[in-house]
Design a protein around this nucleic acid. Structure first.
Length: 772
DNA sequence: TAACACTTGTTTTTT
DNA sequence: ACAAGTGTTA
């Protein structure tokens, strides 16, 4: 009796959970998989489970909790702190894969041949270095686009394929050859060497090297295995192979691992996420207990039912029946607009109206789109209507040029071998060291297998051949950085940052620049200093390290999602659907529901891609608590032209019972690309034009729509049966030419690259003959 | 070296 | 349409 009461008191917070949630929280003797439908209280389960484990007496530093974003980690930590106290919460090993394992890698750096002060390359740094290597190898950088190459390397790393494995894998090498990119293997290996020489890692390396560390050092793996008695992973559907293997390795002994996720919300396969990780979890651990959270507490029944009917169209999924006992709610309204411009107005107007009618503050509204480029049109419409908004995504604060430049100084101070940082600041602010000199330094460094910094530190011993004036400038740069390194021994992050800004000449340059852009740059730098000041003082208060290296390792892994420090009240949220994952809003607008845009044209290849796009749409709809509005436009400004647009095929995947679509919209010609050819859309647009009440307004864009796009002579003359030589795909036979939308496309069967569709206004090729 | 004009490609989502 | 990259000039 007494025992029971005690038990009940101890875990009284469990009363806030439903049966399934509670069962998931209380099970901790083996592997478990929590399938958490949208809005089913997943975060609550995770936080309560952690609190529960701590109450059971598990010391916080024995618990490893991995999340997808820093923001999720922060939020969860603070909610746990509310349950079990700040002191315990702070000692949890909780964060993103990248932040947790960079911490571990710094501790164990020696074992894998790095120094613990290694710096982290972001995607821009990686691409810059790759571009440099491509040039050094004298490859054509039109053919080898840094982005493409980086993608390929990133994919390899996510599958734990090292440069030597890459080179030895005939399948991959064949593929690269087919794609006419046979040198990727060489670029990859060179890239990896350069990163190592720079004592730097890119994002993917943090996972790759963790795996290498665990593979090659059994004793280290053993230590972490023992430490992490319980492992929790959030958003498991979005883990890639590298992440999956880390978890598997750490959990191998005790099998106390709980993964939480929703296969229906897997939307990151482009980044290597493998939905099979969650689908096959049970196979991995046969004794797995599966808990399904199927009650949606977030949304109205209509929204839940509509989303269910949509996701049913996907083939691969774990069975579950998500339901809501909330109000039935309004149907999802589907609205069509004549143009993207009008779409913006419709949304802005509806927000204004709903705000009054429903007494909703602006912060209750979100506009979700597929691509960041769509934000502009909504910005304009909202501004015109005096509606305050906040855009998430796009360029993050830490990716702005001026911030990256300042941060590059920090990187040089912490890790002078950092090649990218060196390149950014060697002539910033300009100190008369140009490309030629940097080229010479690079060359010397390459020749003697040292870093750029080492050459600059001892030009003579690496026989750097520059004139006396340049030598003096290099010496001055070396002295400057050296003195910062010296000061770094005594100053905290903020103090040192002030020194850097002042003595490097950044401050002088910034204050001189009175152009609006210049002032905004100065402001951003000031903002960075403020952030550092805050960092230094809070860290100090908590008795933690507040040196430059600590600041740097923290911000290297931050993204825009994490920078929303100010309380953004009374503003409409604009973001991509990806960025909205995990969030909820009372009123959601899902915009641009058009073929080629959503599903996105490039992501549409194959079933797999299409299903992921459908899941993305599912994520978008399930962000809504009370109302959801879907819009699309019949013409859209894209790449400098107005293009006709068709409503998305996904709209017919939703059970019409849950939709509110006016007759006109419902009758809009839908999706079948085969019948919806150029002439069909031309006729429809003509009709609309004639019916139009404000022909003047519409005349201009329509004219542009069909104005002739200048085609190359080759493209004009091209006909079926021609044999062409394409810049990238090689030789092929034209099997058909057709008008798709407003563009002429050629269907070509290439000898090595297979069947491709080419947009004639973009394609670059020559006609080399005709086939029989 | 830096400022400018011209050309080119672009076309997803992001830890 | 626009941004980024290239080439030309002072």
């Amino acid at each position: 009796m007494q025992f029971k009461r005690e038990e009940k008191n101890r875990a009284s917070f469990l009363d806030n959970l439903n049966e399934a949630q509670r069962a998931a929280v209380e099970f901790c003797d083996g592997p478990s998989l929590v399938i958490a439908g949208a809005g089913s209280g997943k975060t609550r389960v995770l936080t309560y489970k952690i609190a529960w484990l701590l109450e059971q007496g598990l010391p916080p530093y024995y618990l490893l909790a991995l999340t997808f974003t820093n923001k999720a980690a922060r939020e969860m930590k603070s909610r746990i702190a509310e349950l079990v106290g700040e002191k315990q919460a702070r000692r949890l090993w909780m964060g993103t894969f990248h932040s947790i394992f960079s911490r571990i890698l710094r501790n164990e750096a020696e074992a894998i041949g790095f120094q613990s002060n290694f710096t982290i390359f972001d995607a821009t740094d990686s691409k810059n270095l790759i571009k440099l290597i491509i040039r050094e190898l004298e490859l054509n950088d039109k053919q080898y686009r840094p982005g493409t190459v980086h993608n390929q390397i990133s994919n390899a790393k996510n599958r734990l394929i090292t440069p030597s494995m890459y080179a030895a894998n005939s399948e991959i090498i064949d593929n690269d050859r087919q794609a006419r990119l046979p040198a990727i293997s060489e670029i990859y290996s060179s890239y990896q060497q350069r990163l190592r020489a720079a004592n730097s890692m890119d994002f993917d390396d943090l996972l790759l090297y963790t795996n290498i560390l665990f593979r090659d050092h059994a004793e280290i793996l053993e230590r972490y295995r023992n430490q992490f008695q319980f492992i929790l992973v959030d958003e498991y559907q979005d883990t890639n192979f590298a992440q999956h293997l880390i978890v598997t390795q750490l959990a191998e002994k005790h099998h106390r691992v709980c993964v939480v996720g929703d296969d229906a919300q897997s939307i990151y396969s482009f980044r290597g996420a493998n939905i099979d990780n969650i689908l096959n979890f049970k196979t991995n651990y046969p004794e797995t207990r599966v808990f399904k959270l199927e009650q949606n507490y977030r949304s109205t029944q209509n929204i839940v039912n509509a989303a269910n009917s949509l996701i049913k169209k996907n083939s691969e999924q774990i069975f579950k029946e998500i339901f809501s006992t909330n109000d039935v709610g309004e149907k999802i309204e589907v609205k069509s607009a004549f143009s993207d411009f009008e779409e913006g107005l419709i949304v802005a107007n509806k927000i204004s109206r709903m705000r009054m009618e429903k007494h909703s503050p602006y912060s209750d509204f979100a506009i979700l789109y597929r691509t960041n480029a769509q934000s502009r049109i909504f910005e304009e419409a909202l501004r015109k209507n005096n509606i305050p908004y906040r855009i998430y995504g796009g360029l993050s604060f830490y990716q702005r040029k001026e911030i990256k430049d300042v941060i590059s100084y920090f990187r040089m101070i912490v890790n002078p071998n950092d090649e990218e940082a060196f390149r950014r600041i060697i002539n910033y602010p300009s100190r008369g060291i140009g490309d030629v000199t940097v080229g010479k330094i690079t060359h010397a460094a390459q020749r003697q297998q040292v870093s750029l910094w080492q050459v600059v530190a001892a030009p003579a011993s690496y026989s750097l051949n520059v004139n006396a004036g340049t030598a003096r400038k290099i010496e001055a740069f070396h002295t400057l950085i050296s003195s910062f390194i010296e000061q770094n021994k005594s100053l905290n992050a903020f103090e040192l940052a002030q020194e850097v800004i002042r003595r490097s000449g950044i401050a002088a340059e910034a204050y001189e620049d009175m152009t609006p852009e210049g002032m905004s740059r100065t402001q951003n730098i000031q903002e960075l200093l403020n952030a550092m000041s805050e960092f230094a003082s809070t860290r100090q208060e908590q008795g933690e390290e507040n040196r430059l290296a600590d600041f740097l390792s923290e911000v290297s892994l931050l993204t825009d999602q994490d920078t929303d420090s100010e309380a953004e009240n009374e503003k409409v949220t604009l973001m991509t659907v990806h960025a909205a994952k995990g969030l909820e809003f009372r009123h959601v607008f899902v915009v641009g529901m058009e073929e080629e845009l959503f599903p996105y044209a490039m992501a549409r290849t194959g079933m797999r891609g299409l299903e992921e796009e459908r899941r993305l749409f599912y994520v978008a709809i399930t962000r809504a608590r009370e109302s959801c509005t879907i819009t699309y436009a019949k013409s859209r400004f894209r790449n400098g032209q107005i293009n006709p647009a068709r409503k998305s095929r996904f709209l017919k995947d939703i059970d019409p019972t849950y939709l509110n679509m006016d007759r006109q919209t419902a009758a809009d010609l839908p999706q079948s690309a085969e019948t919806d050819d150029f002439w069909g859309s031309m006729r429809r647009n003509r009709l609309e034009k004639e019916r139009s009440i404000t022909p003047k307004k519409r005349a201009a864009p329509l004219q542009q729509t069909y104005s002739s796009i200048p085609l190359s002579k080759e493209a004009k003359e091209l006909q079926e049966g021609d044999i062409i030589e394409h810049e990238r795909f090689g030789r092929g036979v034209v099997t058909a030419i057709e008008m798709g939308g407003s563009d002429r496309r050629a269907f070509v069967d290439f000898e090595s690259a297979g069947k491709k569709q080419l947009l004639l206004k973009f394609a670059r090729f020559t006609i080399v003959g005709r086939s029989g």
